[in-house]
Design a protein around this nucleic acid. Structure first.
Length: 427
RNA sequence: GUGGGUGUAGCUCAAUGGCAGAGCGCCACACUGUGGAUGUGGAUGUUGUGGGUUCGAAACCCAUCACCCACCCCA
């Protein structure tokens, strides 16, 4: 074992084939976000710890954020989430911005966690929010954005489902069971753990937070009732809007979706891989008082976040990862011999000037080696120019995809290549 | 923070106390002007690290480090 320095725990190296996946993800979610009219934005990766102290769970900042002292003695945080930054930006220009805001972002986040499958310390997250309107239709739009992404990524509705619930609906249901207001947040956490704990432990937990046997029975009945939503006018409008948006088949009511966070106030939803294992791919919901904690007027918002790590795990399992990275240039210019070295560089420069991407093999090693290199990197064309061609002003153009070869004059070369590159494969 | 597992060639892994190996990859040659195939040959090791037991340790014991998996948590 060589003593090379390893990557920092919980971080990932992005070799070109990994970077291709990351770029694909960025392009895909950008297209989906922008197809709904959302604007890209971003915030600093570094924030003052105070921004999170006001809001967020205690756990997040105290236990999971990367916090360090800068040279001036200030406590700096590597952002563990985006919402506080969003609140800061919105509050700072609350009276100038044109609401509703439709904003999306994709960038890195850091959390000091114990790495495991689908979880790293440095990850990328897609955040998308609509800020201002508070309506079931606005909620439905965000869910439709999520559905559009899932479809674009190649999933089918029988593989991934968006499960939705409503905190107010649940709150009413709990009130009807005679569960006091102050106990309800605890019940939400209880509901969130329904599938994570063994039934006996789950019921013990229920007793612990003060539920009577009768209330527990009623709660179980509520959680097993797939038609509960029909009592909610808000939820009925939500589903009607999803119909209109063409996303209804991706969405299902599930009374067990509650989300761990305390700050959700209305609709909550989660996209889950349902065919094997039930891992969560993205999650979000409606949250009020977005900017209140950073000193602005309360404003309602709905949004969700999706991490790249678990998504990657699930995409891989379903064979949906895009193909690996080929060279971005379609043309490799070989170097036949030392005498032709500069000629090859001139040839490549001429192609670039004509708008054709081209790379040059750096040494005059034997031709099979250069061809093998071209093959491995996925070049479509290899240019060969030996003494004979140089004498006649020609270039051999070898098409690796079609296994053909033609001698082309130097003047015609860019046009010759472009006729393939305009529409052909492997460009 | 809790529990479990694994560290051997570039990669994936064998070798259960007795000569440290295979497949893939890599390099060379067959093939000095033409890629994926095939064949032949070749290189590559502090067996994570430190100590202990033993005639003898990759293997057993102790410590330590790293990684993986699960829990916790999930903004």
């Amino acid at each position: 074992m060589k003593t090379t320095i390893q990557a920092l725990k919980g971080t990932r190296d992005f070799y070109p084939e990994d970077m291709a996946v990351r770029s694909w993800l960025y392009r895909t979610l950008a297209e989906v976000s922008e197809s709904f009219g959302y604007q890209e934005w971003d915030a600093p990766f570094l924030e003052k710890i105070d921004l999170y102290a006001a809001k967020s769970g205690e756990e997040l900042v105290k236990e999971q954020a990367f916090v360090f002292e800068d040279r001036g003695g200030d406590l700096i945080t590597l952002r563990p989430e985006l919402t506080p930054s969003l609140a800061r930006l919105v509050a700072a220009r609350q009276n100038e911005l044109a609401f509703p805001l439709r904003w999306w972002s994709f960038g890195p986040f850091w959390r000091y966690e114990r790495p495991q499958k689908g979880r790293t310390r440095e990850f990328f997250q897609w955040n998308i929010d609509m800020i201002g309107p508070n309506s079931p239709e606005a909620d439905a739009e965000l869910v439709a954005v999520a559905a559009a992404f899932l479809q674009r990524a190649g999933f089918h509705p029988d593989q991934v489902q968006i499960l939705a619930n409503n905190r107010r609906l649940m709150d009413t249901a709990l009130a009807e069971l005679g569960i006091p207001r102050e106990v309800r947040p605890g019940v939400f956490r209880l509901v969130d753990r329904r599938d994570k704990l063994a039934p006996i432990e789950w019921e013990a937990y229920a007793a612990e937070i003060g539920l009577s046997a009768e209330q527990l029975a009623g709660l179980k009945q509520t959680l097993d009732n797939p038609d509960l939503w029909q009592r909610s006018e808000e939820f009925t409008r939500f589903f009607t809007a999803l119909d209109a948006l063409g996303a209804r088949e991706w969405v299902r009511y599930d009374p067990r979706i509650i989300r761990g966070l305390d700050y959700y106030t209305g609709t909550v939803f989660e996209a889950k891989e349902v065919a094997r294992g039930g891992r969560s791919i993205l999650g979000g919901g409606r949250y009020d008082n977005l900017v209140q904690d950073v000193g602005g007027e309360p404003v309602s918002a709905v949004g969700f976040a999706m991490g790249d790590v678990m998504l990657g795990v699930v995409l891989r399992e379903y064979g949906l990862l895009p193909a690996g990275a080929a060279t971005p240039a379609p043309v490799l210019v070989t170097i036949f011999d030392d005498a032709g070295l500069l000629d090859s560089y001139r040839l490549a420069a001429g192609l670039r000037a004509a708008g054709v991407r081209a790379a040059v093999y750096p040494d005059a090693v034997r031709l099979p080696k250069q061809l093998k290199y071209a093959d491995r990197l996925g070049f479509r064309f290899v240019l060969i120019c030996g003494p004979d061609e140089r004498a006649n002003g020609l270039v051999q153009v070898k098409d690796l995809a079609n296994r053909t070869q033609a001698a082309i004059s130097r003047e015609q070369l860019p046009a010759y290549l472009r006729q393939f590159l305009a529409s052909g494969p492997g460009v």
